[in-house]
């Protein structure tokens, strides 16, 4: 189980592997199934974008991969190892940047190092954080408080914090969802540049199909609740994409297919009305 996956004779190491996961939440009116047959495989160093209708259990997926909860049935593997709890090799980013208001931007970025790299020197921590802040264009803002920054800048700082300890896995739950369209596109490019500079494997939960195609190496469509893996689309585009790629006929076709898949997931098939 887990580990190397043989696909047509080529060995690909799946860093993240989710197999047949089912999960239900206990509610006042009985169990509420949210996941029912989830299968996801993310090869090392690649980017998986997960899309699906609202409330279909996408956030549950992030908590499973982060080891914050265990599924009722099925397995989640990282590196072929069963995930039993939180591990230091994971970074998380949310729609709400959840920066600590009493810390400066620099101290916010350093926070994970205080937990996972207790023996790292202060100078090394600062140097690492400043490198990342530089990559996302926040040099000069390191001593500001989060409240002094715009929403997009706060999300950039939050990205730095989720990457500062060089995690193997980056889990993002709609990190750009609350930003305006232009800021969002800026952050897509920042994300692309970060991927080029740092090796990490990503699971991105998103509502934005263009975002999923621009950033993803594969787009996974989940069905409506309870969610199962409904459709997987490999994204066959050059590594260093520019925003222009979103306006090519090829991408338009891909978006069209994804759009149809979402409609199926919502139970609203084309022509059903």
């Amino acid at each position: 189980m887990g580990g190397p996956d043989r696909t047509g004779g080529i060995e690909i190491e799946n860093l993240i592997e989710i197999k047949g996961v089912k999960h239900a939440y206990a509610t006042a009116s009985g169990p509420l199934p949210v996941l029912d047959g989830l299968d996801v495989a993310v090869p090392k160093g690649t980017f998986a974008a997960v899309v699906g209708p609202s409330g279909c259990g996408k956030s549950t997926l992030t908590r499973l991969v982060a080891g914050l909860m265990k599924p009722d049935e099925g397995q989640v593997y990282l590196h072929g190892e069963l995930v039993k709890g939180p591990r230091k090799t994971v970074g998380m980013a949310f729609q709400n940047p959840v920066l600590l208001e009493w810390r400066t931007i620099l101290e916010n970025v350093i926070l994970p190092l205080e937990i996972v790299a207790t023996r790292m020197s202060r100078a090394d921590r600062v140097a690492r954080a400043m490198d990342l802040l530089d990559m996302v264009g926040l040099t000069g803002f390191e001593n500001k408080r989060p409240s002094e920054l715009s929403g997009g800048m706060r999300q950039r700082a939050s990205l730095c914090r989720s990457l500062v300890h060089k995690p193997e896995v980056l889990i993002m739950d709609e990190p750009f969802g609350a930003l305006d369209a232009f800021t969002r596109e800026d952050l897509w490019q920042t994300m692309r540049d970060l991927r080029r500079a740092e090796p990490f494997t990503t699971v991105l939960i998103t509502h934005d199909l263009r975002e999923s195609v621009f950033l993803g190496d594969q787009v996974i469509v989940l069905s409506g609740r309870p969610a199962r893996t409904q459709y997987v689309m490999p994204v066959d585009l050059p590594e260093d994409r520019t925003l222009d790629v979103l306006y090519t006929p090829k991408v338009a076709d891909m978006l069209h297919i994804l759009r149809d898949q979402i409609k199926i997931a919502q139970g609203r098939h084309e022509g059903a009305h």
């Binding site: 908590r63 982060a66 080891g67 914050l68 709890g85 939180p86 591990r87 230091k88 994971v90 970074g91 998380m92 949310f94 709400n96 959840v98 600590l100 926070l111 994970p112 205080e114 937990i115 996972v116 914090r161 989720s162 300890h165 889990i171």
Partner: peptide, 22 residues
């Protein structure tokens, strides 16, 4: 907010560390 707890819990921080730092 649960996210505040999760950013440290996902790194394996103890409840006491989460209390003290956040």
């Amino acid at each position: 907010e649960p996210e505040y707890r999760d950013i440290l819990r996902a790194l394996g921080a103890s409840n006491f560390t989460i209390f003290r730092k956040i």
